[in-house]
C-alpha cells in the first residue's frame, strides 16, 4: 500500500522535499514507517526519536497505518 510522508523543518532536508510516497506492506505500524525512513534516508536516524503523527493525530509506535494515510514528520524547531 502507498502512504504519504509529509515533512516539516529539517526533515525536509533529509527527504529532499516536503512530501514523499512510500510503499509499505499491509499491517505496517508507525514503527515500521520509522524503520523504512531510516533505511531509505540514513540521516533520518538523527530524528528516529521523533513522535510521528498520522493524518491529524499524534499516535504511538504500534498504531497500524492504512492505505493513503499521511504520516507527518515534525522535528522540534527552536528559533524565536
Amino acid at each position: 500500500m502507498k502512504i504519504e510522508v509529509i515533512a516539516f523543518g529539517i526533515a525536509k532536508d533529509i527527504l529532499n522535499g516536503n512530501q514523499v510516497t512510500l510503499e509499505m506492506k499491509e499491517q505496517s505500524s508507525v514503527a515500521d514507517v520509522r524503520q523504512a525512513l531510516v533505511d531509505l534516508y540514513p540521516a533520518f536516524q538523527g530524528l528516529a526519536s521523533l513522535q510521528l503523527a498520522v493524518n491529524a493525530d499524534y499516535v504511538n509506535d504500534d498504531y497500524l497505518i492504512k492505505e493513503n494515510d499521511e504520516v507527518v514528520l515534525i522535528p522540534p524547531v527552536s528559533g524565536g
Binding site: 529539517i10 538523527g46 530524528l47 526519536s49 521523533l50 513522535q51 499524534y58 522535528p75 522540534p76 524547531v77 527552536s78 528559533g79 524565536g80
Partner: peptide
Amino acid sequence: RDLFPTPPPPEMVPSCNEGGVFGALT
C-alpha cells in the same frame, strides 16, 4: 514534552542563525 519527548541531536535542531528565518513569518 508530550510533543517532543526526546530532543534530537543538536545538529538536527538548527537555530535561525544557522538555518535562516523569514521576517514576516515571525
